[in-house]
């Protein structure tokens, strides 16, 4: 459903991506791993055309070209995006945060507030709380829940575990597993695979703006030299 072919992209003059090839098929969880600064976030941004310019290559979702569209148009086509910094609207309440996208639903599975509260019960409990005072984990849940209300068929999660306590990170994995069971395809970026090995189907390794390896989770673990070469701190 999502396909990137030889994608090059840059911020103003500085090139961030130099040849990304990847694909995600319906219902699949694909993990994008790589060290800090190799282009994982830029890849996510290149998909939704957010603050980065694709200079070469093709980005397509369900056979339509995404390059040149505005981010909101891409979101309305069914691509949900939870950015790395999981910015919630700080001064709005949890409920208000969740209502921002609900006016713009377009997808197949219609997510309701009740659905996301069932997935993240704490959010219902904290619904009147100002989003900015919640913990990082709670904000991450809110950020994911909010994206679900755009009714995505593909969800992009940029380092969803970053800065979260292990127990909270485990809850996020739980949510990813539940979403996968719902049939939502996901592209998840991480610095290491182990956090989401339980739910990932395939893996792409990114280095210096390029996809350098891809395979299944089993193949990834069968090749420890990949980890050594591309993921260990040198």
């Amino acid at each position: 459903m999502l396909r990137l072919e030889n994608v090059h992209a840059s911020y103003d003059k500085s090139e961030a991506l130099r040849g990304i090839d990847l694909s995600v098929t319906p219902g699949e969880v694909v993990c994008l791993i790589g060290r800090n600064g190799v282009g994982k976030t830029s890849t996510m941004r290149a998909i939704v055309q957010d603050q980065i310019t694709v200079t070469q290559g093709r980005v397509s979702f369900e056979d339509s070209d995404l390059v040149g569209l505005r981010p909101y148009q891409i979101v309305r086509r069914g691509v949900g995006y939870v950015p790395e910094d999981r910015r919630v609207f700080q001064s709005l309440s949890v409920l208000e945060n969740l209502r921002v996208p609900s006016a713009k639903a377009a997808g197949r599975r219609q997510w309701s507030l009740d659905d996301v509260f069932a997935l993240f019960p704490q959010l219902y409990e904290y619904r009147r709380r100002t989003a900015g005072v919640m913990s990082g984990g709670e904000q991450q849940m809110l950020s994911i829940a909010r994206s679900l209300l755009t009714n995505p068929r593909l969800l992009l999660l940029d380092e969803p575990h970053e800065g979260l306590a292990p127990k909270v990170a485990e809850e996020v994995v739980g949510a990813i597993i539940e979403l996968k069971a719902e049939g939502v395809a996901m592209l998840v970026s991480e610095q290491a695979l182990h956090t989401i090995r339980r739910c990932a189907d395939r893996v792409y390794v990114v280095d210096r703006g390029q996809t350098v390896w891809d395979g299944t989770v089993e193949e990834f673990y069968a090749h420890p030299e990949i980890t050594e070469k591309y993921l260990m701190v040198q």
């Binding site: 603050q51 909101y72 950015p83 609207f89 209502r99 713009k104």
Partner: peptide, 23 residues
């Protein structure tokens, strides 16, 4: 809902756009 859209775009137009709003 329009007011919420106005406030969300005001606080963070990129986030609002990633949620399907045209800032």
């Amino acid at each position: 809902p329009l007011g919420l859209a106005i406030r969300s775009v005001g606080q963070d137009r990129y986030r609002a756009e990633a949620l399907g709003l045209s800032p």
